[in-house]
């Protein structure tokens, strides 16, 4: 019984992984005419990926989704707007500031700015710039979740805010220094990590299903969209302030 359950979950995870294996095998053998190197290593690695994905999905259903929704409902019932917004900001800020992908991108961006002669290329200036970039992104993600939660409470339609955001992105692009634009555009994508996304989704859906008159589908989603839009604007403004 348990064995059949594990087998089914494992099969699901294997299906998720199959496209990558096929793509890599096709290009390796057909296009590049090279054998698959270390076949044994690749196979054990793939087994770990399948096992990991199975556990992750199981853990989502048991832990992350319930805790996100329970927190949202408890905070909504408490009726304190202040604490709800505090929680929203803290969730966005704290999960982003230590995000490894962001640390890597910020360090790389500092190197590029140093090489381009935009900032002095010594260690302390570069580190200072990278830290400033990280804090900028973390604050902007915190604010995104805060605005997103406020939007669920007020029932504002998501597309006005997002399209308004697009307009601001385009206007800021016009005045931002060229070296920051690529990084700013990418910063939106790297902020939302694998553990944050399920938690934020559960927070939104939990809130929208607790508050009367809100639909979980129309109002519950949209938090992640803000978190990938606002960092773009903030990073460009950071560039304007530092370089301008």
């Amino acid at each position: 019984m348990i064995f059949a359950f594990i087998l089914k979950k494992g099969k699901d995870a294997l299906t998720d992984l199959l496209p990558i294996i096929l793509v890599i095998a096709f290009f390796q053998i057909v296009v590049l005419h090279q054998p698959l190197p270390q076949f044994g290593e690749v196979l054990t690695g793939a087994l770990f990926v399948v096992a990991g994905l199975t556990l992750f999905v199981q853990g989502l259903e048991m832990g992350l989704f319930p805790i996100g929704e329970a927190m949202a409902q408890a905070l909504a019932r408490k009726g304190s707007l202040f604490w709800l917004l505090c929680f929203a900001f803290a969730l966005g800020f704290s999960t982003t500031v230590a995000e490894p992908a962001l640390i890597a991108v910020a360090a790389e961006a500092a190197e590029i700015a140093g090489q381009g002669g935009l900032i002095a290329p010594d260690r302390s200036t570069l580190d200072h710039y990278a830290l400033g970039l990280r804090l900028t992104v973390a604050v902007s993600v915190g604010l995104s979740i805060l605005i997103g939660v406020l939007r669920i409470l007020k029932g504002w339609p998501v597309h006005y805010l997002i399209i308004g955001g697009y307009v601001v992105v385009m206007l800021t692009t016009v005045i931002a220094p060229q070296e920051i634009i690529g990084i700013a555009y990418d910063a939106g994508g790297v902020t939302t990590s694998t553990i944050t996304v399920p938690l934020v989704a559960a927070l939104g859906v939990g809130l929208a299903s607790t508050i009367r008159g809100r639909s979980p589908l129309i109002d519950g989603f949209g938090l992640i969209a803000f978190a990938s839009l606002l960092p773009m604007i903030f990073v460009m403004v950071y560039g304007i302030i530092i370089f301008g």
């Binding site: 054990t44 690695g45 793939a46 087994l47 770990f48 990926v49 399948v50 096992a51 990991g52 994905l53 199975t54 556990l55 992750f56 999905v57 199981q58 853990g59 989502l60 259903e61 048991m62 832990g63 992350l64 319930p66 805790i67 694998t194 553990i195």
Partner: peptide
């Protein structure tokens, strides 16, 4: 328990 699953699962996934 679910949280532990998520952490171990994600680590296995990344290591693989």
């Amino acid at each position: 328990v679910g949280g532990v699953y998520v952490v171990i699962g994600l680590a296995l996934f990344l290591a693989g």
